[in-house]
Amino acid sequence: MSYDRTAVVFVNLGSPKESTPKAVKQFLKEFLGDPRVIEVNPILWKIILNLIILPIRSPQSAKRYETIWTPEGSPLVVETEKLVGGMGQRLGKKFPGLFCTYAMRYGDPSIANVVRNLHLEKGFQKILLVPLNPQYSATTTGSVMDALCDVLKTMRSQPEIRMVRDFHNEDAYIEALAKSISDFWKKHSPLGEKGKLVLSFHGMPQSYVNKGDPYQDQTVVESDLIANRLNLKSDQWIRTYQSRFGKDVWLQPYTEPTLVELAKKGTERIDIVCPSFITDCLETHEEIEGEARKAFLDAGGKEFNYIPCLNAQDYWLDLFSDFLGKHLNGWEEQS
């Protein structure tokens, strides 16, 4: 039995090719042009996006990307490649012949190009799609499914598809996050009476949740599981939402204003993690390590610790490969 015609495709959000205004503008145009991300009148939004948002936001975002860019390139891309390499080694041992690669929802390599290449050029008959979004949202995993369906509609021969919808409450993921946090405390120091753990999830407009998006419910479930795994009392942690865009009401409480309020009320130390992200990126490095840190310390806080994403940590990849094995079992080729 072999898996030599089976591929696993990990899908991350994507990144500009370079930290230049031109490259960032191209990326933002695709990202913010996705109707799953911005749910407004498409004709009106296209005008606003191209005439107002992109000319103003692209240079601003390029400066932000420049602060986190590495010699190897975008942190999100670098960490995604490390993750896929590590998962390929682990899954390859469990499922001989299995091939692992990645695609980006926005930018390159695109889902369309990767799926077409795997099936039409390389002959893979079965594809497991793994969005690197622990929580399901129409804005993320739903959009990945849209992109997949768009390319499948153009293919006369189509591969067999399986897809991981979410893993926000999977024991492997909760265990890995809890270990990441507890390992930090063992190495650094315990949280202490005047410290608080902040679980900062990516935000979204409240209206999306009101229409039925399950994202917020999944963040509540996940954060409770993490707190329980760490044996935290209710006053030792808080769940917040970051990355607000525009003037609409988004999920609350907002991360940065909450940090400022905590500092003013006497919280001296913040340890913060971002459970919406598997790999570190602009939102974790620049928004949390940079802007949120400054806001907390300027408001009177004394210590701010960002705990990195799981990225390609060995213990996480071991647990993740066991979890994905459940989706691959029984999919082998009969010899």
Rank of each mutant, 00 (worst) to 15 (best):
I238E: 05
F245I: 14
T240W: 08
Q216S: 03
S234D: 15
R229Q: 13
I238A: 09
D213P: 09
P214R: 10
A227N: 09
S234L: 10
W237F: 15
D224L: 12
L230G: 08
Q242Y: 09
D224N: 14
L230V: 01
G212E: 02
S234V: 11
G246E: 04
L230A: 09
Q218C: 03
I226N: 07
L232E: 03
G212V: 02
Y241S: 09
V220N: 06
R239M: 13
S243Q: 11
D217Q: 13
G246C: 04
W237H: 11
I238R: 02
D213H: 10
T240L: 09
V221W: 00
T219W: 01
V221L: 13
Q218K: 12
N231A: 13
G246N: 08
R244Y: 02
Y215I: 03
W237C: 04
D235R: 09
W237S: 04
S243M: 12
I238M: 10
N228Y: 02
S223V: 04
G212K: 02
T219H: 01
N231Q: 14
P214C: 07
R244G: 13
L232C: 09
N228M: 12
K233A: 14
Q218A: 02
Y215C: 05
I226W: 08
S223Y: 05
L225W: 04
R244S: 12
Q242A: 06
Q218R: 08
F245P: 08
Y215E: 02
P214W: 04
S234R: 15
N231H: 15
Q236W: 06
G212T: 02
Q216P: 00
G212H: 02
Y215P: 07
D217G: 12
K233F: 06
L230R: 04
D235N: 15
S234Q: 15
D224A: 15
D217P: 00
S223F: 01
R244I: 11
I226T: 11
N231G: 11
Y215T: 07
F245M: 15
D224I: 10
